[in-house]
């Protein structure tokens, strides 16, 4: 007698749950059919701006694959991966991957659109014309050496040209991969006050 009552009450409860689940299924199916694409786009968009910081990630060393002339495990953006030495002007500065003003405050920046030393292409470095960085660029001469010591090797370059360009003349710092050319630039005039709209570029070739 009691069992029958319990079975009846359970039946009613189970039927409520089954119908409820069926309703949920239909709602999700309808949402997927009518808004699936929009939801996927929204998720993709949000995941694009959801950047996981790799603070606890184990550091993987950067290696130069000499055969392919490419790097394996590129340095992380904003990190120091090299030092640049220019004996003529007594410069020995850290090189960071990236070219934001925040990075340039710390040393020399590596334009993220250019190649890395050893990759056989254009390498674009930049630094402020402050005393700590490239104020003495005017003392440089053709034939002067520039040494770049990276975490994966040492590269020596020889200056073969120097040019004064406008900040908008990007074609004067071309990105190519036929020859390894290091282009280092700073703001001009060197002892400028205010906003400088000219750049002094030094072009150096890799010494074999």
């Amino acid at each position: 007698m009691l069992n029958k009552k319990i079975i009846q009450a359970s039946k009613a409860t189970i039927s409520v749950i089954i119908v409820a689940l069926l309703l949920v299924g239909i709602i999700y199916l309808a949402t997927y059919l009518f808004l699936g694409q929009e939801i996927d786009t929204a998720v993709l968009l949000l995941n694009t701006v959801a950047v996981e910081l790799n603070d606890n990630k184990e550091e993987v060393p950067t290696v130069l694959n000499e055969e392919k002339q490419t790097l394996e495990n590129y340095p992380e953006y904003g990190t120091q991966y090299a030092t640049i030495e220019i004996p003529r002007i007594g410069a020995n500065l850290p090189v960071y991957f990236g070219d934001t003003l925040e990075i340039l405050k710390k040393g020399v920046g590596h334009s993220s659109g250019s190649y890395f030393p050893g990759e056989g292409g254009s390498i674009v470095y930049m630094g402020h014309n402050s005393k700590k960085v490239f104020r003495r660029f005017s003392e440089l001469q053709i034939g002067d050496e520039i040494k770049v010591t990276t975490t994966y090797g040492e590269f020596n370059y020889k200056i073969y040209d120097m040019q004064l360009i406008k900040e908008t003349e990007l074609e004067k710092v071309p990105i190519q991969r036929e020859e390894e050319i290091l282009m280092v630039y700073t703001c001009y005039p060197f002892n400028n006050i205010g906003y400088a709209d000219h750049r002094f570029v030094v072009y150096a070739k890799l010494e074999q």
Partner: peptide, 8 residues
């Protein structure tokens, strides 16, 4: 960030 390039 703008100080270094301004020379000020």
């Amino acid at each position: 960030n703008y100080i270094a390039q301004s020379g000020l």
